[in-house]
Design a protein around this nucleic acid. Structure first.
Lengths: 110, 110
DNA sequence: ATATCATTTCCATATCCTTGGAAATATCGA
DNA sequence: TCGATATTTCCAAGGATATGGAAATGATAT
């Protein structure tokens, strides 16, 4: 996963409404939820929900499937995994993140 | 970790320059790097680097320590861990995320 | 004290993001 | 076909973020 993709995925999750949508879809499982159900559950105007779902989809974090006039959205766990891997590999000391509870000591450097 | 904090941390990382700064600091290890070194390495104006460092600090992802007229920034791995935990617990099917891997390219694991 | 260097704050600008009503599109049922 | 329902696209505010020059702050050595 390239940094640009990681940034896009992180940005997709870095917003209250979208994070709520994503969490809802995680709970919903593989079948996902219809767009209308999502906007109803989160009390969002349809246009707003649609906008955020499009963002999440564009980041590869959710996928959509049409069923009649409904559009079901569900999470792409594989993508989420890639994001987590990216963060673990690039933004922690590798596996160190699990191990080091971070309590650095003072030192000098140049 | 509350959703609001998670959003803030994710937003801090969801920006090219800041992600680059953070990754640089991860590589730098516990001693961190002086603000000037960071802006030099990433070819950023001092004001810009300072702005992004403040964002990261405000999200709790980095901390700063003054040494003379230098200010060293270093990562807060514990915080990063919290973010990863949050994502794993809330944005995957719990442990399910580990189990459903990406068949795309899982080349570099640690 | 003063010149110098490191960093931050101030501020204006440009750009991107979010929101949601209204119109458009698509599907179903009768 | 018509009318109701589901969802998306269009669009226009309003708000939030990013950028970087310039001034302010803080620290050091001489």
């Amino acid at each position: 996963m390239k940094p640009a993709q990681a940034v896009k995925a992180l940005a997709a999750l870095a917003q209250d409404t979208r994070l709520a949508v994503f969490r809802l879809l995680v709970q919903a499982g593989p079948e996902g939820l219809a767009a209308g159900v999502i906007s109803a559950k989160l009390k969002l105007p349809a246009a707003t929900a649609s906008f955020h779902l499009a963002q999440l989809a564009s980041a590869g974090l959710v996928k959509s499937r049409s069923e009649g006039r409904f559009v079901f959205y569900s999470v792409e766990l594989a993508r989420m995994n890639e994001v987590l891997s990216y963060l673990t590999e690039n933004c922690c000391g590798g596996a160190a993140c699990e191990v080091a509870p971070a309590r650095a000591r003072t030192a000098k450097a140049a």
